[in-house]
Computed example of a mutant assay.
Amino acid sequence: MTYTVGEIAKKLNVAPSTLRYYDKEGLLPFVERSAGGIRVFHDTDMDWLELIECMKHTGMPIKEIKHFIDYCVEGDSRINERLSIIRNQRDRVLVEIENLQARLSMLEFKTWFYEQAQANGTTSFYESLTPDDVPVEYHKYFERKWRADKEAAEKGESPKKYRAV
């Protein structure tokens, strides 16, 4: 089956201008043209387009995607380079996933914190929390406070007041 730019753009959920841009940048060397010069896409082109979109969404610049496509066009002599590009991008994504997990963890903690504040009617509820009062997965967010409170107690001082954020 064949598709127009508009039809394939709809399937990929991208603007037709995006596909035209990809073609202009040399990312679509496989796309045929009709006798009238109109781009004609086939079902088999979807694999290429999905990979291009995947790479783009992982932050790979168009120029690097172009290098990858060029290596694909060159054939089996460039398998090592293609594998290297894919591995590097995979590693970038893994780092990004770790960073997103850390952000999600902070947001989960803050959700818990503000739910507790809402239930207590104040954010200052946490001043007297002990490790037994806090779910284990959120201890890392209280360690500085608990350490400072312990040091103050050892010096015979009052615990420092904290402002909730």
Rank of each mutant, 00 (worst) to 15 (best):
F113C: 10
S34W: 08
H67F: 00
Q116T: 14
E143S: 05
D45G: 07
G59Q: 09
Q116C: 10
P159F: 09
V14A: 07
Q89G: 05
W112P: 04
V5L: 02
R92P: 00
D47W: 09
V5R: 03
P29N: 04
V136Y: 14
Y126G: 06
I62Y: 04
I85P: 01
M46A: 04
N88C: 01
D43I: 03
I97K: 13
Y126E: 13
K24L: 03
G6D: 11
L100S: 07
Y21M: 10
T2Q: 08
S84V: 01
S158K: 14
R78H: 15
V95R: 07
K66S: 08
V40G: 00
H42V: 00
F68G: 00
R103Q: 10
F68Y: 14
V136F: 12
N13H: 11
E32G: 07
Y141R: 05
D132Q: 15
E127R: 14
P131A: 04
T122Y: 07
P135S: 14
R163Y: 11
T122D: 12
T18D: 06
D132I: 08
Y126A: 15
L49C: 07
L107Y: 14
T4H: 01
Q118P: 04
P135W: 11
L49T: 01
L12P: 02
E157D: 13
A9M: 02
K161F: 06
L19D: 00
A117D: 02
Q118C: 12
A153P: 02
A9V: 05
V31P: 05
L51D: 06
I65W: 08
L28F: 07
V95M: 02
E157I: 01
S17D: 12
L107P: 03
K56A: 12
Q118T: 15
W146I: 04
K10P: 02
I52A: 04
Q116I: 09
R82V: 08
S105C: 09
A148T: 13
E74Q: 15
I86E: 00
K110N: 10
A117E: 01
L51E: 11
E108H: 12
E151M: 10
I79A: 03
F41K: 03
P131E: 11
F142I: 09
T122V: 10
V31Y: 06
A152Q: 15
P131D: 06
E151Y: 08
R90H: 13
D149H: 13
F142W: 12
D132R: 13
N13K: 13
I86H: 00
D149N: 14
F113L: 11
Y21E: 02
A102F: 08
R33A: 03
K11E: 01
L129I: 06
Q116D: 07
E53M: 08
N80C: 10
G37H: 00
M60C: 07
Y162V: 12
S105V: 03
W146P: 03
R144E: 12
L19V: 02
L19A: 00
R82D: 07
Y162H: 09
E108C: 06
N88K: 10
Q118G: 10
I69H: 01
K155A: 14
V73L: 06
M55W: 09
I8M: 15
A35N: 08
K24T: 03
A153S: 12
D76F: 04
F125V: 11
H139E: 10
Y71H: 10
H139V: 11
